[in-house]
């Protein structure tokens, strides 16, 4: 049996190894994705994002347990940053999820960003597809701790939960662009801290001004993830959002945009790989650079010539 057949038959080892092959872009990666793709599209994907230390891992752990109580199987992809200097990473999200490790209905995989800046790793979307094909009902993506503009999580999620904590800035922060625009649900975690009323009010005021509220007005929920407070309520909100996605047709719309973006990205990746393979042979890149410096060629006609040759 090949690795995809094994994982479709339920092998956790095959699942783990298929993820590695795709993450590391081994030669067989494209074939794995090709075989897995027909089995995707069934899982409900929930993105969990927010600043570092807001409680994303703890909240993911507690939400996963709620879904397990309803006998749904759960996959978790937890992303942590890769060092820009050494290429290594400390992937520590499992620390908050140890009670899930021995549950055979849960599969957790940690990923380093490996240079991506949008809050996910470049291959996170593919890893979700593999878990989806494996048969997970619910898949959580936990992003790296984000600041304001790391919004790649929208490229992969049906529902996005933005986790915030009290005491992190005034109401101008709340009207800036970025992660506050992508939340379908806001979880105010550590809601036993000071400042929770103010944050709640500021969020509600910001959300009141959304132009699209007639369709879905994002919900604000309070949680204390470490104690499990409010988690059931939060899951209820996620379920409400899923119902909205399905009944309004928004799910189809979102997934269609995603399919389009993924296709464009794939085309982009393949063309740039071909170009790179072509010009990195035998130091041609350096001689092209020299020819620009010597005013023999411009970057523009070089690009035109290379593309003409490759797309011939």
């Amino acid at each position: 049996m090949d690795i995809v057949q094994e994982l479709l038959a339920g092998s956790r080892l095959a699942l783990a190894r298929a993820i590695t092959a795709v993450e590391n872009e081994y030669d067989e990666a494209a074939e794995i994705m090709q075989k897995v793709y027909p089995f995707t599209g069934k899982a409900q994907v929930i993105g969990i994002t927010g600043p570092p230390g807001a409680g994303k891992s703890t909240l993911t752990d507690k939400l996963a347990k709620e879904y397990r109580r309803q006998e749904k199987t759960v996959g978790i992809v937890a992303v942590d940053p890769t060092s820009p200097f050494y290429g290594g990473a400390i992937l520590g999200d499992r620390i908050r999820m140890n009670e899930l490790t021995l549950d055979p209905g849960v599969f957790i995989r940690s990923m380093g960003t490996r240079g991506s800046l949008g809050g996910l790793a470049r291959k996170t979307v593919d890893v979700i597809k593999i878990m989806d094909a494996f048969g997970k009902d619910i898949i959580f993506i936990e992003t790296v701790g984000v600041g304001q503009s790391e919004v790649d999580v929208i490229k992969a999620s049906d529902t996005i939960v933005v986790v915030l904590v009290p005491g992190q800035g005034d109401d101008i922060q709340a009207i800036k662009a970025g992660i506050l625009e992508i939340g379908d649900i806001f979880a105010i975690n550590k809601a036993d801290y000071d400042g929770v009323e103010r944050l709640n009010t500021e969020l509600e005021m910001m959300l009141e001004l959304n132009p699209n509220n007639a369709l879905w007005r994002p919900l604000v929920k309070r949680t204390v993830a470490s104690r499990g407070d409010g988690v059931e309520d939060l899951m209820q909100a996620i379920n409400e959002h899923v119902e909205y996605l399905v009944t309004s047709g928004e799910l189809i719309r979102r997934r269609s945009i995603r399919t389009k973006n993924e296709l464009l990205l794939l085309i982009n990746d393949h063309i740039s790989k071909q170009v790179m393979d072509r010009i990195s042979l035998g130091g041609e890149l350096d001689s092209l650079v020299n020819s620009i410096e010597d005013h023999q060629q411009t970057p523009y006609n070089i690009v035109r010539n290379i593309l003409a040759e490759i797309l011939r």
Binding site: R12, L13, A16, R17, I19, T20, T82, S83, Y86, G87, G88, A89, I90, L91, G92, R94, I95, N98, T101, L102, F107, I108, R109, S110, G112
Partner: peptide
């Protein structure tokens, strides 16, 4: 190990052998 360029999955304190082995499998 991080500074050596490795990806380090740290699982925290008081792990049972079963938890360690399962985490090793999932994380490949």
């Amino acid at each position: 190990l991080r500074d050596a360029g490795f990806e380090v999955i740290y699982t925290g304190l008081r792990q049972t052998p079963e938890q360690i082995a399962e985490a090793a499998l999932e994380e490949d």
